[in-house]
Amino acid sequence: MSPAEGSAAGADVLTVSDVAVRFGGVAALREASLTVRAGTVTGLIGPNGAGKTTLFNVVSGLQHPDRGTVRLFGTDITRMKPHRRARLGLARTFQRLELFGTLSAGENVQVGLESSVKWWQWRHVRSSFPTIRNRRADGAEARPTGPGSTAVVTSDRLLDGVGLAGLADRQSSALPTGSARMVELARALALAPKLLLLDEPGSGLDDAESQSLGELLTTLARGGMAVLLVEHDMELVMRICEYIYVLDFGDVIASGTPDEIRTNPLVQAAYLGAVAGPADGSAGGGGNRVEA
């Protein structure tokens, strides 16, 4: 079944066609194709080394493919620079954290929020200089009230939304992994993306946090966002994804609804076979986490 048939989803947001990437003699991706539609959470699963992160890099522009095309809303973005793709509405997080470590959590999100702002505009330059109004009674600098203040308020709101209320002033490199992943997510959401690529966002989260993450992603998709999720937490993937692609050795070996993936013998042989018991998320008393 195709993604269009598998859900009541909207238009195609991302179309990856026959993408191939080689690193020297190693084929990281061979003829990989997938489609992500608006208003859905689409899963991308596969063992370590299957090519999931390489595919994310190709889609976000950090890696040029040897062959194949990437289209965003029908526009060919295969050779487009990463920042231009982001301006078209593509945001991502990283498997290995890529935070602005010297900045606070709030500032990380602010950088995303203000990414379309031209810094040389006078109103933004002026906001860097102190004014009497910014002075608080206790002598400390008040939080900005100029043009940057909208970003501060919104970054607080976004951090609140990913469960990091009150942590805006913490240096991001000092945060635990789970919290740092949520800062990355908040920074990506700050772009108000139409397509969100999440590379193992559940890593480092406990069961309750993972549950909340699932609800958050479902809410975002319900609002029209297209989400492409790479995740090893099978319970989470099976629960929130409407459509799933399975990568193995750079090939898309299967795709379908969670039910189809569960029962697909190819998937069981190549991937889920690595886990004892059924792959329905109910085995083993709790999260059926695949560590391939």
Binding site: P82, A86, A91, E98, L99, G101, L103
Partner: peptide, 11 residues
């Protein structure tokens, strides 16, 4: 801090 993240937030 992170050129890759910088580019992917549209900068």
């Amino acid at each position: 801090d992170s050129p890759a993240a910088y580019a992917t937030v549209g900068l």
